[in-house]
Design a protein around this nucleic acid. Structure first.
Length: 414
RNA sequence: GGGAGAGUGUCCCGAGCGGCAAAGGGGGCGGACUGUAAAUCCGCUGGCUAUGCCUUCGUAGGUUCGAGUCCUACCUCUCCCA
């Protein structure tokens, strides 16, 4: 199975990161010879990255671990244009302030996975706004644009899809692939970067860069894409009803992040352990051999390891502990969300304020259906009001909503 | 520029003779079963101080006791002709 000679490609292959590689043998040989510089571009469309972006981040991580130099490229310039790949509709145009704000939020995430610096194996952070924003249109057309064939561009999936469905593709978006290709060549010039990685939907864009590099700089560049990760039941990663699973602790609390991974489907556990934790493969194989209910142990490991990478080991253990006291012992873990209440407050309002339900009407329906427990007592009366005896000596009560949602009601003192 | 069609429940898709809080899916949430899994079955899926009241069908007007439904204008998208 280990068809490669380099650690870099072997690790990626064994852990399931590789979908397609251009000229794998040549890249492999290069990686054996010495440090390779490679990059992945990240959009600045939101103020944090979410679980969907974790995969490319992990590729950069392994790249550095196997002795190479990763570059995290912030798309400060390309986000102003908007990537049409895989999108049904035009992306709305973001203001420059928003982009810069988003960029700042995204930046911090990388410091948890990569060691930055100026040494030969230290990671670099770049921003394509640095070179794209100052481009001169005519010069750019003459230097770069002449290498692109519109006939060919029209044949790319990202473009064809839009045209076939007769959905508008603006000239602005049409240029995205040209800019991304130019990024690759520019990074090659600046840092000697020879590899661009990304999701499988980026293949066309990356190959464009490779060709542009050959024409403009006579360089041999490489592409490596990762498979699109969906759960066993076909859903895209990182989205729940509550919204995307962000990596920023302020947007998704570590406890919720832990829970996200804890609730992984059986069929995904091994795959996710390989992709989203840095546990050795032997350990993953051991966990993968667990059967039936024992798989829950593997899921806990997955949750804790994945959380530790993003939020640190302490936060991960805290989340694991809270989950244990809450679900195993029916107690109140420290990490649970807490709501200040008074005696006489309605049960519906409590659920809505905690975000368990979107409105009191919805809360009413769910209470009627038996979804809500106060401690061990099922509450089925929508008009129920909190009573003093519902709380323990410390003025706390455990509110359960459904199977998984838990919160602490804290009686206001005084 | 001319002709034809479309826009529906703030997640999506989609039915809707003038009586409509509006069929049916998907998704989501909840219940049962389990292992905080999947599959399956069942319930819910506009809001509220709730046997009632308020707000929803691209936007703004109009006809009508009553409009998602009919008329007018406008916006957006698609198709055909120029």
């Amino acid at each position: 199975m280990s068809a490669y000679k380099s650690d870099f490609l072997n690790i990626l292959a064994e852990r399931g990161f590789i979908h397609q590689v251009s000229e794998p043998d040549a890249l492999d040989a290069l990686a054996v010879k010495g440090p390779v510089t490679g990059y992945i571009g990240f959009d600045c469309t939101a103020s944090s990255l979410h679980v969907g972006s974790l995969l490319p981040i992990m590729m950069l991580y392994w790249m550095q671990q196997s002795g190479h130099r990763p570059i995290a490229l912030m798309g400060g310039g390309t986000t102003r244009v908007g990537d049409p790949s895989g999108k049904d509709e035009s992306r709305r145009i973001l203001t420059d302030e928003m982009i810069n704000q988003n960029l700042a939020g995204i930046r911090t995430i990388f410091t948890k996975f990569l060691k930055f610096g100026s040494g030969p194996r230290d990671a670099l952070m770049a921003n394509n706004a640095d070179w794209l924003n100052t481009l001169n249109y005519i010069d750019f057309l003459r230097d770069v644009g002449r290498h692109f064939s519109v006939n060919r561009m029209l044949s790319f999936d990202s473009v064809k899809l839009r045209l076939d469905r007769q959905q508008e593709l603006s000239f602005l978006e049409f240029n995205y692939m040209v800019l991304q290709a130019y990024d690759f060549v520019e990074l090659h010039k600046r840092t000697g970067c020879v590899l661009q990685m990304g999701g499988s939907d980026q293949w066309g864009n990356i190959v464009n860069g490779i060709e542009l590099g050959r024409r403009m700089a006579n360089a041999q560049l490489f592409a490596l894409t990762s498979p699109l990760i969906t759960t066993s039941s076909g859903a895209k990663m990182g989205k729940t009803a509550a919204g995307a699973i962000w990596l920023n602790a302020a947007m998704v609390r570590p406890y919720d992040y832990w829970q996200y991974w804890r609730n992984t489907e059986d069929g995904d556990v091994v795959r996710f352990l390989k992709l989203f934790t840095i546990l050795p493969l032997s350990e993953i194989a051991r966990l993968g051999a667990l059967k039936g209910a024992e798989i829950n142990e593997a899921k806990k490991v997955l949750a804790t390891e994945a959380t530790a990478l993003v939020h640190g080991r302490d936060a991960a253990h805290e989340a694991a502990k809270t989950a244990d006291t809450t679900f195993k012992q029916g107690g109140m873990g420290a990490d649970l969300p807490t709501l200040q209440v008074k005696v006489g407050d309605g049960i519906l309002e409590a659920n809505t304020k905690l975000g368990f339900t979107a409105s009191n009407s919805q809360a009413r329906q769910q209470v009627t259906q038996g979804a809500v427990y106060l401690g061990e007592t099922k509450i089925t009366d929508p008009a129920y009001r909190l009573r003093a005896e519902d709380f323990d000596k410390d003025g706390r009560a455990l509110l359960k909503f459904g199977n998984k949602k838990r919160a602490i009601l804290q009686l206001a003192s005084g």
